[in-house]
Write a protein that binds this DNA or RNA. Sequence first.
DNA 1: ATGAATACCTGAGAGC
DNA 2: TGCTCTCAGGTATTCA
Length: 288
Amino acid sequence: MPELPEVETVRRGLQERVVGRTITAVAVTHPRAVRRQAGGAAQFEAEVAGATVTATGRRGKYLWLTLSGTDRVLVAHLGMSGQFRVQDEAAGDDDDPHVRVRWSLDDGSTLVFRDQRTFGWVLSDGWAGEVPDSVSHIARDPFDPRFDPATTGRAIRRSRSGIKRILLAQTYVSGVGNIYADEALWRAGLHPEHPGDRLRSQRVGQVLAAATDVMTAALAAGGTSFDPLYVAVNGESGWFDRQLEAYGRQGQPCGRCGAPIVREQFTNRSSHRCPRCQRPPRSRPRSG
DNA sequence: ATGAATACCTGAGAGC
DNA sequence: TGCTCTCAGGTATTCA
């Protein structure tokens, strides 16, 4: 599923293939893809058609295209299974049941948004300072030049939530999903339920650094498999699988100590950890 | 205000 | 073969 490294790979592909192009036509083929647009598909199509793409942007798992000739910005979230593709031919995907939006570009190519599980969306949005309105509630990610680990760490240490919930919330640090949360916690040797306010400052720094490191490595791996003919983008691709130490490795030996990795239920999701390297925290003493 | 549970969605795979 | 069931999970929304 697309987390920060995958979304950044998509952004780079769009930067290469779409910036400078003028959108000559837009067609929404599934209304759910524009469910966040107050005026629906008609508004989305009207506001995007005719604009020229001038730049790309990203924060966490949100990405956007800035448009000239309008004060709007085209924001996208890939959800679970969203993909962008650029096709040199104007036609060719007529029988693809997962295409949700098509943009015709002025060089004859077609930009396509595909999304099997329809958790993704696109939006013609306004600006809220440095990011679009729909992204204003999302914290900076570790690749943001203005990301401040010390400030982020202090916020984490004010929360009573478990560290994995904190990592997934997108309001402390953004870009981390279930896979990289498990990987970061494995690297830092932290149990997912360890409360933020019971972590020492140094430990919080370690887990933030681990999240940054694992996403940097994943981005590098994504870059090597990048196919310039398309905007590389298979949300379910397993190109980083071989480097995962915890996620999906239940029953296999921990790469550090050899104990079998366990999978546990976590908010109706799965969580993977080493039972020896990532011990549960002592329960919080009751007050009163 | 804070934190946590829930709804949303579809294809793959398992079990029978 | 075909049916039913489970599972995957990011985030907006709802609830406590």
